[in-house]
């Protein structure tokens, strides 16, 4: 028995042996996770009177970065000026930055408990273009878009969705349309 078990583990390469010992747990049922997320959103509404966000906090981060690197330029920026100062943009901005830090912590805790913390890159190389290029390019287009839309999948999608906000539902429908339109161009990266 023991020898059989040892040879079984030793047969494959070293990495598969490690994966067998510390295999990643499967993901949670999506409807259960969705109810969990919905309750978190509801608790935010009940306690602080507003919903969740993610991209809004990044504006504060970029603004603070710009202020450090080019203070005069930042002070003259029509867009970033409201985000600078002691309590940038009021307490809501501070709230969003702390919440984003929480998202990072919670994501790590969940992945760690499930054995899913693993350094690596997801997605195949697309033709001659390295994966980091599509990641940065996609991120840049998305970041720009969040400011036109006044939010992202968290602040508009989930929060505005639950509040039946007209602009949020317009954003969400356009988001799915945009993604399905462009998906064909990057199919090889994902499938």
């Amino acid at each position: 028995m023991t020898t059989a078990a040892i040879t079984e583990v030793n047969q494959p390469t070293a990495t598969t042996a490690v994966q067998q010992r510390r295999s990643a747990a499967p993901y949670m049922n999506p409807y259960l996770a969705g109810v969990g997320l919905g309750l978190v959103l509801l608790i935010a509404f009940i306690t602080v009177g507003h919903g969740l966000g993610a991209s809004g906090a990044v504006v504060s981060m970029v603004g603070a970065g710009l202020q450090t690197v080019a203070p005069a330029h930042a002070a003259n920026s029509e867009f970033f000026r409201p985000y600078l100062g002691a309590t940038p943009g009021g307490t809501l901005q501070t709230w969003l930055v702390l919440e984003l830090a929480g998202i990072f912590i919670g994501g790590f805790v969940s992945a760690w408990l499930a054995g899913r913390v693993k350094r690596g890159v997801v997605g195949r190389k697309l033709g001659g273009s390295p994966r980091w290029l599509t990641a940065i390019a996609g991120g840049a287009v998305m970041g720009f878009a969040t400011r036109l839309a006044r939010g992202c999948t968290s602040g508009q999608g989930l929060t505005g969705g639950a509040l039946l906000n007209v602009g949020s539902w317009a954003f969400m429908l356009a988001l799915f349309a945009g993604a399905y339109l462009v998906a064909g161009l990057v199919r090889r990266q994902w499938t």
């Binding site: 969740l52 993610a54 991209s55 990044v58 984003l100 998202i103 990072f104 912590i105 994501g107 790590f108 969940s110 992945a111 760690w112 899913r116 913390v117 693993k118 350094r119 690596g120 890159v121 997801v122 997605g123 994966r131 980091w132 599509t134 990641a135 940065i136 390019a137 996609g138 991120g139 840049a140 287009v141 998305m142 970041g143 720009f144 878009a145 969040t146 036109l148 839309a149 006044r150 992202c152 999948t153 968290s154 317009a170 954003f171 969400m172 429908l173 356009a174 988001l175 799915f176 349309a177 945009g178 993604a179 399905y180 339109l181 462009v182 998906a183 161009l185 990057v186 990266q189 994902w190």
Partner: peptide, 29 residues
Amino acid sequence: GGLLFGAGFVIGGYCPGTSCVAAASGKLD
């Protein structure tokens, strides 16, 4: 904004919140 966001989402692979979660679990992309 929604159209551009959707395009960027499928090209990059993550939306803002999920990019933080993925980065926290070691995804460099």
